[in-house]
């Protein structure tokens, strides 16, 4: 699997990196869903994403919807400029909770 994940302060953090396209988004999707299946609150770290397309974004949407259904927390952190511009294009910047990093998220969580 080309992406890694860690558990930190109550969140499973999936770190996507490089190009998240049709070739690699199935891996991202599998990892995101796997974490959620384990009933983890989930943050996806996009700080090292150079490129993401609609298939990568679709993995995020699927994760968001599953988390909501399961009553789990979901969010994005450290969204790179490349990723942010694509999220904006899909107007998803208004849907996903986005924070600079885990600290910012935890602060917001209260």
């Amino acid at each position: 699997m080309s992406f890694g994940h860690r558990v930190e302060r109550g969140y499973a953090v999936v770190a996507l990196r490089g190009d998240v396209d049709l070739a690699r988004s199935p891996d991202a999707r599998a990892l995101i869903l796997q974490c959620l299946e384990q009933k983890s609150d989930l943050l996806v770290d996009l700080s090292e994403v150079d490129y993401i397309d609609s298939s990568g974004v679709a993995s995020l949407v699927e994760g968001y919807q599953m988390a909501k259904k399961e009553g789990l927390k979901f969010g994005l952190i450290g969204v790179s400029e490349a990723a942010l511009s694509v999220l904006k294009l899909a107007r998803l910047d208004q849907v996903f909770p986005i924070h600079a990093d885990l600290d910012a998220r935890l602060l917001d969580d209260g």
């Binding site: 397309d53 609609s54 974004v57 679709a58 949407v61 699927e62 919807q65 694509v86 899909a90 107007r91």
Partner: peptide, 18 residues
């Protein structure tokens, strides 16, 4: 439609926008 939140169907929207 973008208010319909589902994983697929974004590609054509992206092409349209870009």
């Amino acid at each position: 439609a973008l208010d319909e939140l589902r994983p697929g169907g974004l590609g054509t929207h992206f092409i349209n926008e870009l």
